[in-house]
Write a protein that binds this DNA or RNA. Structure first.
Length: 859
RNA sequence: GCCCAAGUGGCGGAAUGGUAGACGCAGCGGAUUCAAAAUCCGCCGGUAGCAAUACCGUGCGAGUUCGAGUCUCGCCUUGGGCACCA
């Protein structure tokens, strides 16, 4: 092999890698083609946000997908493995605010950079299908989808709360609210209502829940998280009559999942946004003051749950439905959200921690409705909250037997209440409709027009895309679309009169809820092309972070259903992802010192010298090492793959990110690990070089051993890849490399072994694999060669070594023929030294023989 | 606060309920070398012991089992998510 006239005598990744990348491109190896002669396989990694530089976590994510893509290609599939960018979102606007650029320029520059960083990694991607969600060609089709959804009744408007910064006069994202204050202004954030657009995902609550059962190749934890998120519950909805309610409000409607605790009720709580609270607020300044205070803080469930529980006694009293003489106080409480249930609850302090805290704070009675079957408890000190499946003894029984489980009691209570005309049993879901309105510039414009005479009218499809104006500035807070001099002005699509455009843009989750479908026909003039979608859908293997377990995946499942109803996806794609794999993060130690003011200072890995587990700066200062932290720009612990590739090559980076940790777990990037990987790849190269120069020789006795090891390796590595056990597969490749390096087999056998090794390595280290293939005179490209098959006959061992346990502890071993029957094994085991010594003449109580695994003698 | 995970040598980790620590890193010893780098060979959980071996050991505490890293229950710690970060 000669490159540039210099004979190559060592592993030179920088020379090998561009060469093979070019060869793959020339042969269009990874261009996805539709054809009837082969089965298709669609592998997709969650597309990246164009933050500016790729990150070692991206390398890991895309390498996993690439392993699958290359493996499936070699097993005879038409593979679709596309890449794109999730390109709308806040960071682009933040960058524009910080440095005065334009979100569009920033985003497209970042995309260019990231593509140029990804290409040298040699991913088998079909780059011809690339798009960014901020391309008007993409978001225009998204607008068409929105209009279709609107026609099908899947989109509507209603009021919803947002984080409002009263100083900057702008809506804040949850991450822009820090400890209840605006991130820039520092002002106390308020919850304020705005009219916003919603997708009716709640129409699909039951279906999105029940269809989880069919997702056999999804992680159980993801399905469980989604099921809990959807949160189907059965409960009782009923009204408390108000004793002294204001005009027009005779009742408060509440929803409870624990109607069996109704006899332990001690107060009624309503949300500060409840119509009754609003009514009282209008003419009582004290109520108004409380409500205003209660609306402070962010909108997240976490903020609400962690906030101090506060209540305001309205002075209103409600009558208990089963005891006309029993009156309960009505409180406005800051922890009750208008979005959940009816925005009103009854509190039962005996059996709920939050209600207990509230009752103690406001001196409300705490009574039990049930007690444990055994033991004493002090209900005043702590609430009694057993699992609903546990049997308890009811002390204030509403319905059913005295001793029953919570679940039984709830059902009995619902039946009893219905029979007595107190409300009715209802099934509710925790899942709320998906608010998609964002009061921001860098997103997909919502394609509707507000007309004085026609109301809210969808834009005509022939006028799509409704594009974002380029002439905007970010020097003042708020939505630039709102203050743009002309952009809003348009004519009504219905009557032609002057009208104004909607200035809300879409949540970026909308962009990522259908990109997988768009990849099947990225240039189509409709959202999808049904022939292409029919062929390529569904995604056979989807790979991404566990952080997307709920929102992105749930929204995509909803979108697939909605698109199907509108004729943009085939019926089989209601569940678009056949298999899901959630990978872990790449972490890296943080090196920290403290400056004179006591502030932490973070140091880049290249500034730190490691000696015996301690780290030092060049001037000798010791640094604190915080191990395994999520990579974060602000902590200076981000490892740049570009540097790694420059130093060691793409194959080293690819192999290392897969080898060191199970894919679902976080991996710690270490410089030493990368160095070791590079050495190993060099050894494999040298091994191939040595074999190529070996003299031809006759078949030796060592050939059979080598080939037996080879077939076992084929089996283990194939299984490893199929099961996402990349680290275990790589461990087998290390082991086989060691066997081959020490083998005394003939050249013929060694050549066969190194070529199979190259094939097995090719999904992980495709460039090195091609190089070895070529050195050994393989036909064509290894990327297009068929995956090796393990010969079952070569996988069977003649004998097996069984450990012998005595009372569960290993005390010896015997080697027996693999097919020896249980009785024989038992006899041999009993005769063994270890057992004889332990028995000392006595009889064993029991002998367990697990064929091929173990013998346990119980004495 | 609620939901979901994870925790195994100095480090990353392996292990269909069946020999805990495969494989790799670091370390130690040796070969090679004038020397080093590179490479190769060997050792490598803890305690005791010359050794054979024994005891202990998979975050903590219980339990199920002939047998538990693996299953059950209760904790602790760390991570992910909590609907406007993506």
């Amino acid at each position: 092999m000669h490159i540039g006239g210099t004979p190559m005598s060592r592993y030179a990744a920088s020379e090998i890698e561009p060469k093979w990348q070019q060869a793959w491109e020339q042969a269009s190896v990874f261009t996805a083609t539709r054809s009837a002669d082969k089965p298709k396989y669609y592998v997709l990694e969650m597309f990246p946000y164009p933050s500016g530089r790729i990150h070692i976590g991206h390398v890991r994510n895309y390498t996993m997908g690439d392993v699958i893509a290359r493996y499936k290609l070699s097993t005879g599939h038409n593979v679709l493995h596309p890449m794109g960018f999730d390109a709308f979102g806040m960071p682009a606007e933040n960058a524009a605010m910080a440095s005065g650029g334009h979100p569009k320029t920033w985003t497209y520059d970042n995309i260019d950079t990231m593509v140029s960083q990804m290409k040298p990694l040699g991913f088998g991607l079909d780059w011809s299908r690339m798009f960014a969600t901020c391309d008007p060609e993409y978001y225009g089709q998204q607008q068409a989808l929105f209009i279709d959804f609107l026609e099908k009744g899947l989109v509507y408007r209603k009021n919803a709360v947002v984080n409002w910064d009263p100083v900057d006069m702008t809506v804040l994202a949850n991450e822009q609210v820090i400890d209840g204050k605006g991130w820039r202004s520092g002002a106390d954030v308020e919850r304020r209502e705005l009219t916003q657009w919603f997708f009716k995902i709640s129409d699909y609550s039951d279906e999105l829940l029940s269809a989880l059962d069919g997702l056999d190749n999804w992680p159980a934890k993801v399905k469980l998280m989604q099921a809990n998120w959807i949160g189907k519950s059965r409960g009782l909805q009923f009204g408390f009559d108000l004793v002294n309610g204001p005009a027009g409000t005779p009742q408060i409607e509440v929803y409870t999942t624990r109607p069996d605790t109704l006899m332990g009720a001690s107060f009624i709580g309503i949300s500060p946004d409840h119509p009754l609270a609003r009514q009282l607020e209008a003419d009582n300044p004290d109520v108004a003051a409380f409500c205003q205070m209660a609306r402070k803080g962010g909108t997240t469930e976490e903020a609400l749950e962690k906030a101090e529980k506060l209540g305001f006694d309205t002075g209103l009293r409600a009558r208990h439905p089963f005891d006309a003489a029993w009156e309960l106080p009505v409180y406005i409480a800051n922890f009750i959200l208008m979005d959940y249930g009816t925005g009103a609850i009854f509190g039962c302090p005996g059996h709920d921690q939050r209600d207990h805290d509230f009752a103690r704070k406001y001196g409300l009675p705490i009574v039990d409705t049930f007690l444990p079957l055994e033991g004493e408890i002090d209900i005043q000190a702590a609430p009694f909250v057993p699992l609903k499946t546990e049997k308890v003894r009811y002390t204030r029984l509403l319905a059913g037997p005295e001793v029953q489980t919570g679940d039984q009691a709830v059902n009995a209570a619902i039946d009893h209440c219905e029979a007595n005309g107190v409300g009715h049993g209802v099934t509710k879901f925790r899942l709320r409709d998906w608010g998609l309105s964002r009061q921001r510039y860098w997103g997909c414009p919502i394609p509707v027009v507000h007309c004085d005479s026609c109301g809210v009218v969808p834009e005509k499809k022939e006028n799509l895309p409704v594009t974002l104006p380029d002439d905007v500035t970010f020097d003042v807070p708020g939505n630039p679309l709102d203050r743009h001099p002309t952009w809003r002005q348009c004519s009504c699509p219905s009557c032609g009169a002057p009208a104004t455009r909607e200035t809300d843009t879409m949540d970026t989750f909308v962009d990522s809820s259908w990109y997988f479908a768009r990849f099947t026909a990225p240039r189509a003039s409709t959202p999808t092309d049904m022939a292409e979608a029919e062929y390529w859908m569904n995604v056979d293997q989807y790979i991404g972070g566990i952080e997307h377990a709920i929102l992105h995946l749930l929204y995509s499942r909803f979108f697939a259903r909605a698109m199907q109803i509108c004729g943009h996806l085939p019926a089989k794609s209601a569940e678009p992802f056949d298999a899901l794999f959630t990978q872990g993060m790449v972490t890296h130690a943080i090196y920290k010192t403290t400056n004179a003011e006591g502030r932490p200072v973070y140091h880049y890995p290249e500034e730190v010298e490691l000696r015996e587990g301690r780290g030092f700066l060049q001037d000798g200062t010791e640094v604190d090492i915080i191990p395994s932290a999520k990579m974060s720009k602000s902590k200076n612990n981000v490892v740049d793959p570009v540097q790694i590739i420059a130093q060691y090559g793409a194959d080293t980076a690819r192999w290392f990110v897969l080898s060191d940790s199970p894919p679902e777990r976080d991996v710690e990037w270490t410089a030493a690990g990368a160095e070791a990987t590079h050495k190993h790849l060099g050894r494999v190269w040298a091994l191939s070089d040595r074999i190529a120069q070996m003299a031809e020789g006759g078949e030796g006795a060592a050939d059979a051993d080598l080939l037996r090891a080879m077939h076992k390796t084929i089996q283990d590595v194939t299984n490893g890849i199929e099961a996402f056990g990349f680290n275990a597969a790589i461990a087998r490749l290390y082991a086989f490399t060691n066997v081959l390096a020490k083998s005394k087999a003939s050249k013929q056998a060694q050549r066969q072994a190194i070529m199979v090794l190259a094939q097995l390595m090719s999904p992980m280290t495709p460039h090195l694999a091609e190089e070895i293939w070529q050195m050994q005179g393989g036909d064509g490209l290894i990327a297009q060669a068929s995956w090796p098959q393990a010969d079952p006959a070569m996988l069977v061992d003649e004998s097996v070594t069984l450990p012998i346990q005595i009372n569960g502890k290993r005390r010896g071993e015997i080697t027996v023929p693999t097919d020896m029957d249980k009785a024989e094994v038992e006899k041999l085991a009993l005769a063994s030294d270890a057992v004889q010594r332990a028995l000392d003449g006595a009889q064993p109580k029991k002998i367990i023989v697990v064929p091929g695994r173990i013998v346990n003698v119980v004495i």
